[in-house]
Nucleic acid binder design. Structure first.
Lengths: 167, 167
DNA sequence: TTGAATTTTCAATATTTACTGAAAGTTAAA
DNA sequence: TTTAACTTTCAGTAAATATTGAAAATTCAA
């Protein structure tokens, strides 16, 4: 495989996008590389193509596996490990959504409920604060609901609903 | 206003959440502080409550204003500027969604279309890559659609649809 | 208009985050 | 088992990002 200019741009685009969402650039670039690759890649090939160290490659591949985006592939007769990315973009999106719900949304919802428990409508100031907590909780719960529907439902059903404006 | 333990935790929660999504901690903490405050705050009060420098406060307040989350308030007879946050959480979410669509989603969609234009189904490798680009484009377009509906539609209609599972 | 009050900017610095590379750990063929 | 191939870890370092604070710019009351 030779990397074309278009593919370099794809790797960069994916890397920039991800870094805006709290995922590090190298992790995203390895992911982009594996998404483009029909076959499997070894750590050495990834290191070479992205110009990164062994340690960096190893740690980011591990994270991609934790996220469920990349899998190890054992090749008969080969000593070296190879890696491949999940290619179904809907499955990729579901895996990412699942992780973000668990890592970010749910802890915040728990924290909001806890904060609500601490606060009582003693005075005007507290009542304003309590309304704020309730409003944020309502919004976070709605986002949680949408994401859960997305994660659990059939791809075609969900896409069709959205294209039909939730009709 | 005295900051309670609960409010400190709210500021921290909001700060942590935001930093996971590419917004810096201080910007989020100022936002949290202003959301909790019924009245208006001056730069000096913000500096004091969050223990940050004037420059830092100024720059992050400016960013919050660019995002449409905070507004300047002129108080008659006062020389100093005061600031207040938009308190309607739905409007806050809409403002954030609007910025993220513009800053992140749309550039990526443009970039994907550009990449698709460069690539032709010459061989099997290219055709695999083209499918990848199409799938990501399809997904990004769907997310764009949902977010645009959210931004444009009436709050009650949207929430009701979601609570009814898009029925 | 002046000049004191206030806001803004930005070079220097501190902090956080990511990366390297070599050493330690693991694996499996011989 | 040995040992060479390969993977993982992590202390040290580099790079990126955020913050400070003082100087420059702006504003407005007198």
């Amino acid at each position: 495989m030779t990397i074309t200019a278009s593919e370099i741009q794809f790797i960069q685009t994916w890397g920039i996008l991800s870094s805006q969402w709290g995922i590090n650039r190298t992790m995203a670039q390895i992911h982009a590389l594996l998404l483009m690759e029909k076959g499997n890649l070894s750590t050495d090939e990834i290191m070479e193509k992205l110009n990164i160290s062994r340690g960096n490659a190893n740690m980011n591949i591990r994270d991609l596996m934790i996220w469920g985006l990349v899998q190890k592939v054992h090749i008969a007769g080969e000593r070296m490990e190879f890696y491949k990315a999940e290619k179904d973009i809907h499955k990729v999106a579901v895996a990412i959504a699942r992780e973000r719900i668990k890592r970010e949304l749910e802890p915040v919802i728990i924290s909001l409920k806890e904060l609500k428990g601490f606060t009582f409508k003693e005075d005007e100031e507290s009542s304003h604060y309590l309304k704020l907590l309730n409003d944020i909780d309502e919004f976070a719960t709605m986002v949680h609901k949408i994401m859960t529907i997305f994660v659990q439902s059939d791809k075609n059903w969900f896409y069709k609903k959205v294209l039909n404006y939730f009709k």
